[in-house]
Amino acid sequence: MPLVKAGYVVLDCAEPEKLAVFYKELLEGEQTDATANRVEIQGADGTRLAFRRDMNATPPSWPRPENSLQAHLDFVVEDLDEAERRIVGLGGRPVEAKDAPGPYEERGFSDPAGHSFTLRRTPGTAPKQG
């Protein structure tokens, strides 16, 4: 067993309960723990995220070129269009950004609290026909 194991990716936000619902639904997961200032979830694939209350949290302003991305989440999907519809339905929004260089088709989004994340098409997936 390793000395140190990965725990959670933690996002600061003003309303952790609401943001946890967004990611729980997106990842088809479940809430695993909650306190007054933190909510933890685990996605169906085992991804563990936590949301910590910070009343002064401000999201990064990416993709504006003068500001850094800071940190973001990457999710892998087979159908970008279907995933985008789900994200928007849950309260997320697409982010205007240039096409990413490299072999993967990607789309950028922000969650309801403004944190950036990317959907990447599963490598090796054939393009849609028709």
Rank of each mutant, 00 (worst) to 15 (best):
residue 69 L to Q: 12
residue 13 C to S: 02
residue 92 G to F: 00
residue 88 V to Y: 01
residue 101 P to M: 06
residue 49 L to K: 11
residue 29 G to E: 02
residue 87 I to R: 02
residue 57 A to Y: 07
residue 82 E to N: 10
residue 89 G to K: 12
residue 99 D to A: 13
residue 42 Q to C: 12
residue 13 C to L: 01
residue 80 L to K: 12
residue 77 V to W: 12
residue 83 A to R: 06
residue 40 E to S: 14
residue 16 P to Q: 03
residue 11 L to N: 00
residue 67 N to C: 08
residue 100 A to G: 04
residue 8 Y to L: 02
residue 79 D to M: 08
residue 45 D to Q: 13
residue 87 I to V: 15
residue 58 T to Y: 11
residue 9 V to M: 04
residue 105 E to F: 06
residue 77 V to R: 11
residue 65 P to F: 10
residue 86 R to A: 09
residue 101 P to N: 10
residue 43 G to Y: 06
residue 81 D to P: 01
residue 37 N to G: 09
residue 56 N to T: 12
residue 36 A to H: 13
residue 94 P to E: 04
residue 10 V to M: 01
residue 95 V to E: 04
residue 100 A to Q: 14
residue 24 K to L: 06
residue 25 E to R: 03
residue 57 A to D: 07
residue 9 V to C: 05
residue 57 A to W: 06
residue 84 E to A: 12
residue 45 D to I: 11
residue 82 E to G: 03
residue 48 R to S: 15
residue 93 R to E: 07
residue 47 T to Q: 15
residue 27 L to V: 08
residue 13 C to H: 03
residue 65 P to M: 07
residue 71 A to D: 11
residue 43 G to C: 10
residue 41 I to F: 07
residue 61 S to A: 14
residue 103 P to A: 13
residue 41 I to G: 08
residue 23 Y to H: 04
residue 10 V to G: 00
residue 39 V to T: 11
residue 57 A to K: 02
residue 16 P to N: 01
residue 53 R to Q: 14
residue 29 G to H: 00
residue 75 F to R: 06
residue 18 K to D: 14
residue 94 P to S: 07
residue 64 R to C: 00
residue 83 A to G: 06
residue 17 E to V: 00
residue 101 P to I: 05
residue 57 A to R: 04
residue 74 D to W: 12
residue 32 T to G: 05
residue 45 D to S: 13
residue 29 G to F: 04
residue 105 E to D: 14
residue 67 N to Q: 09
residue 16 P to R: 01
residue 60 P to Y: 00
residue 55 M to W: 02
residue 73 L to Q: 14
residue 37 N to T: 11
residue 64 R to D: 08
residue 100 A to S: 14
residue 71 A to W: 12
residue 29 G to Q: 03
residue 99 D to Q: 10
residue 46 G to K: 15
residue 75 F to T: 03
residue 8 Y to D: 01
residue 19 L to Q: 02
residue 32 T to M: 07
residue 52 R to F: 15
residue 17 E to D: 08
residue 59 P to H: 12
residue 59 P to E: 15
residue 26 L to F: 09
